[in-house]
Structure formats: C-alpha cells, structure tokens
C-alpha cells in the first residue's frame, strides 16, 4: 500500500447525503476479477447519459453535463467533499478502488458507513470525518472559489484551508500508523503467528467441534 502523509488538491463537492456504494460503482462493474480499471466507471449512472456496461469504450460515452465531476472547474479534483453517511450499502471494496483510481486521495464528509470507512484505509484512501458545520462551510467556500484547494496533513491530523482555519480530525492510532508508513497489514498480523496458534489451541480444547 502507498503511504499517505500529506496531500494538497482540488476539491469537488458532491452535495448528497447517503451516497451508497451502488451509486459509487454500479454492480455490473463488480463482475471484474481484477483490482484495477474501475476509475472510468465511478458514479457511472450519474456521470454518463447512457447505460454503462463492462467492456465499453468510456471515452466515447455521452457525459452528463450536470454531474459535478464532469464540470470543467472540478477536473483533476483529488479531494471529494460529501454529505453524511457516505459509502452506505454493500461491502464492495470496488467503491474505494473506483474513487482512488479516478484520482481521489481523500474524502471529507460528516460521517461514513462503517464498512466503506474501513475499506478506504486498506487502499491508502483517507476518509476524513469533520463536523457538520465544518463540512457545510467547506461546501460554501468550494462553491464560491473556483480552483479551491485543501491541504490534508495526516501526521498533524488537520485539514488546512488556504489562508485561514484548520480543522482537526480524529483517526485511530493503529490505522494512522499503517497509513503513514504504508504498511502491509497482513505482514503486520503475521508477526503474531505464535499468539494466533496459541489461541487456536485453547479454543480447540474448549470447542473441538469448530476445528
């Protein structure tokens, strides 16, 4: 996994609550057995005017001009601003894959669904939960200032607004360490092989039918 320490980037606002994983990446694209190639189908039903299917040449499909990510001023955005309960619905990790492969590095929202939130960390995509008022303010300044950028500093746990305030965010210590260092979580867990074996032996003595 790539390490994440700091990032500065253009902000795109997606002004909807409860954006679900079916909207982030529709199910027909989940048939892929690969881990890459999901970016062009991020928000497929909102982004294009026709119906997307796997294998299409996405560069030739008609874009929906009203969808925010299709607007010129948000081209190249790498920070997504969203409303509450972002990423609700299914456990598909294709959702963070699609966001990341589109070019997003961080998502800011008042709250996230649990499984999505968790999946982001496994891919070096940083979900940042800020207060509802703070997010509201960011929506306003993003709308008012074309080219509006934010600076995210994971080590300091802050989002810096250019020439102004900084918003602090929480992150669990273990997750932060993994992200800042770009650690392979499986490798980390395998340091505890002896503990896992000992645990299994104890359980097998108590509940032999499980093993």
């Amino acid at each position: 996994m790539d390490a994440f320490r700091q990032h500065t980037g253009l902000v795109a606002p997606l002004d909807r609550a409860n954006v679900d994983t079916d909207a982030i990446i529709p199910k027909q694209f989940l048939k892929s057995i690969k881990r890459s190639g999901f970016g062009p189908n991020l928000f497929d039903e909102w982004r294009y005017l026709d119906q997307g299917e796997p294998g299409m040449d996405n560069s030739r499909r008609p874009l929906n001009p009203n969808f925010v990510l299709n607007q010129e001023r948000y081209r190249g955005a790498s920070i997504l601003l969203a409303r509450k309960n972002f990423g609700c619905g299914s456990s598909r990790e294709h959702a963070p894959w699609a966001l990341q492969q589109f070019g997003f590095k961080a998502i800011i929202a008042p709250s996230f669904a649990d499984i999505f939130f968790n999946n982001c960390y496994k891919n070096g995509l940083l979900p940042i939960a800020l207060g509802e008022m703070e997010v509201d303010h960011l929506f306003n300044v993003t709308a008012a200032n074309p080219g509006f950028q934010l600076h995210v500093d994971l080590e300091r746990q802050v989002v810096d607004i250019p020439g102004g305030e900084s918003y602090r965010f929480d992150i669990e210590g273990f997750r932060k360490q993994c992200l800042v260092n770009g650690w392979d979580e499986i490798g980390l867990t395998l340091r505890h092989v002896d503990k896992i074996r000992a645990y299994e032996a104890a359980r097998a003595a108590k509940e032999p039918w499980l093993f």
Binding site: R35, S90, S91, R92, E93, P96, I115, N118, N119, K122, N123, E172, F174, E185, I186, T189, L190, H192, I196, E200
Partner: peptide, 21 residues
C-alpha cells in the same frame, strides 16, 4: 457476524484474523 471488504477477505484467508476496534 459482519461484512468485510476484499482486502480483509485476503487478510482472513492469510491469518484467520482481522484487526478491529
């Protein structure tokens, strides 16, 4: 019982464990 993403599917396969709070 809880749902997990694909990275965690791999993690469980490899280690029989998951990191959780």
């Amino acid at each position: 019982a809880f749902g997990i993403g694909t990275s965690e599917v791999e993690h469980v396969m490899a280690t029989q464990c998951l990191n959780a709070k």
